Amino acid sequence: MRKLSDELLIESYFKATEMNLNRDFIELIENEIKRRSLGHIISV
């Protein structure tokens, strides 16, 4: 996760939620978004 750019991480989050991927996977992405202080972009 740390090698993904912020932009790609956010894009991955939206794609994963759109495709209804595994909730655990989405939570991993959400946690990384929060760690990077980007939660305001997706309202996490």
Rank of each mutant, 00 (worst) to 15 (best):
L38R: 02
T17W: 14
T17D: 08
V44Q: 15
M1I: 15
A16S: 07
L21H: 09
S43Y: 04
E30D: 03
E32W: 02
K3C: 08
R2W: 05
K34W: 08
I42V: 08
E30W: 15
I10W: 05
L21F: 12
I41F: 11
K34F: 10
L28N: 05
S12V: 15
K15H: 15
R35M: 05
S5N: 06
G39E: 13
L28W: 05
E27V: 13
K3Q: 14
R35K: 07
S37F: 11
H40Q: 07
S12C: 08
R2V: 09
K34D: 05
R23T: 11
A16N: 04
I42M: 04
S43G: 14
L8C: 11
L4D: 02
S37Y: 09
L4R: 02
L8I: 11
H40W: 08
K3W: 07
H40T: 06
F14A: 06
M1N: 03
L28K: 05
E27P: 02
F14H: 10
F14I: 13
T17F: 13
E7H: 11
V44H: 14
I41S: 06
N22V: 06
G39Y: 09
R35P: 00
E7P: 06
I10T: 03
D6Q: 03
S5T: 11
D24A: 13
K15G: 07
D24S: 12
D6E: 04
K15Y: 15
R2I: 09
I42Y: 01
E32D: 01
E32S: 01
L9I: 04
I41A: 13
S12W: 15
S43K: 14
L21M: 13
G39M: 09
K34A: 08
I10S: 02
M19T: 09
F25W: 14
D6I: 06
I29N: 00
E30R: 11
F14N: 07
H40Y: 09
Y13G: 00
R36Y: 01
G39T: 13
M19S: 12
D6M: 05
M19C: 09
D24G: 10
R35D: 04
M19N: 13
G39I: 09
K15N: 13
N20G: 15
I26A: 03
G39W: 14
E7G: 07
I10G: 02
N20P: 08
N22S: 14
F14Q: 08
E7R: 10
H40D: 08
I42T: 05
I41P: 04
M19A: 14
L9C: 01
L28R: 05
G39D: 13
E32M: 02
N20S: 07
E32A: 02
N20R: 06
L21W: 12
I29L: 12
V44S: 15
F14D: 04
L28M: 14
T17Y: 13
E18H: 10
M1K: 02
R36Q: 00
I26E: 01
R36I: 01
D6N: 10
I26M: 07
L9S: 01
E7K: 12
K34S: 07
K3P: 03
H40G: 09
N22W: 08
A16L: 04
L21E: 12
K3G: 13
K3E: 15
S12G: 08
I33V: 06
L9T: 00
T17I: 15
I29W: 03
E32R: 00
S12R: 05
K3N: 15
G39K: 06
V44E: 15
N31H: 10
R35A: 09
M1Y: 04
E18V: 05
E7D: 10
N22F: 07
S43N: 14
L4K: 03
S43C: 08
E27I: 13
M19F: 04
L21T: 10
L21C: 08
N31F: 10
I26Q: 03
K15V: 12
E30S: 10
I10F: 05
S5K: 03
K34G: 05
A16F: 08
Y13N: 00
S37P: 02
K15P: 01
M19K: 09
I26R: 04
I29M: 09
S5P: 09
M19W: 03
S37N: 15
L38P: 02
N20E: 12
E30T: 12
M19H: 11
I26P: 00
E27A: 12
L4Y: 08
R35C: 03
I33N: 00
L38N: 02
I41D: 04
K3S: 14
L4I: 08
I41V: 11
F14P: 00
K3A: 10
L21Q: 09
K15I: 13
S43A: 13
E30K: 13
D6S: 05
R23Y: 13
E30I: 15
M1E: 03
V44D: 15
F25G: 03
I26L: 09
T17H: 15
N20Y: 07
L9A: 01
R2G: 11
K3Y: 05
A16W: 07
Y13M: 02
G39N: 10
E11V: 06
L21Y: 13
S37L: 11
I33T: 01
E27H: 10
N20V: 06
S12L: 15
L8E: 15
S5H: 03
D24P: 08
F25E: 08
F25P: 01
R23F: 11
I33C: 03
I42C: 04
D24R: 09
V44F: 11
Y13I: 02
I26S: 02
L8M: 12
H40C: 07
A16M: 06
H40M: 06
R36D: 00
S12D: 05
E18A: 11
Y13F: 10
I29T: 01
A16P: 01
K3T: 15
M1S: 03
N31W: 06
Y13A: 01
Y13P: 00
S37Q: 13
L9K: 01
I29P: 00
T17L: 15
E32N: 01
I33P: 00
N22G: 13
K3H: 12
L8D: 15
L8P: 02
R23W: 14
S12M: 15
D6L: 06
V44N: 15
R36C: 00
S5F: 04
K3F: 06
L4N: 02
F25R: 04
R35F: 06
I33S: 00
N31T: 12
M19D: 12
E7A: 13
H40N: 10
R36M: 00
R2L: 12
L28E: 11
R23S: 14
S12T: 15
S12Q: 14
F14M: 10
V44I: 13
I26D: 00
E32G: 01
R23V: 12
L9Y: 01
N22T: 10
M1V: 15
F25S: 05
T17K: 14
A16I: 05
E18S: 10
L8A: 14
N20T: 05
I41Q: 08
F14K: 11
I42N: 03
K15R: 13
E7Y: 12
S43T: 15
I42D: 03
D24T: 12
M1P: 04
N31K: 13
E11M: 10
S43M: 11
E30M: 15
E27S: 10
R36F: 01
K34R: 14
D24N: 10
R23K: 14
E30N: 05
A16D: 02
S5W: 03
N22L: 08
L21V: 11
E11A: 11
L8R: 09
I10D: 01
E18R: 07
S37M: 13
I42A: 04
R35V: 05
N22I: 07
N31A: 14
R35H: 06
D24E: 14
L28Y: 04
F25V: 09
Y13T: 00
I10E: 02
E27L: 12
I41N: 06
T17R: 13
L21N: 09
G39R: 05
F14E: 06
I26F: 04
E11C: 08
L38Q: 03
E27W: 08
N22E: 13
D24M: 10
D6A: 04
E27T: 12
D6P: 03
R23A: 14
E7C: 06
R2Y: 06
R36L: 01
R2K: 11
R23M: 13
N20M: 09
I29G: 00
I26W: 04
E7F: 11
K3M: 06
F14L: 12
I26C: 01
S37D: 12
R23G: 11
S37G: 15
R35S: 07
N22Q: 11
D6K: 03
L38T: 02
K15Q: 12
R2D: 11
V44L: 14
F14Y: 13
D24H: 10
H40P: 07
V44R: 13
L8G: 09
D6V: 05
M19Y: 05
L38K: 03
E11K: 10
E18I: 07
R35G: 04
L38F: 03
T17E: 11
R36V: 01
L8V: 11
Y13H: 02
L38C: 03
M1A: 05
N31C: 07
E11Y: 09
S43P: 11
L38S: 02
I33E: 00
E11N: 07
S37A: 11
F25L: 14
N20D: 12
E27M: 13
K34E: 08
E7W: 12
S5E: 04
K15F: 14
I42F: 02
D24F: 10
R2T: 14
S5M: 03
R36E: 00
D24Y: 10
F25C: 09
I42H: 04
I29C: 04
S12E: 15
E7M: 12
E18K: 07
L9P: 00
S5Q: 03
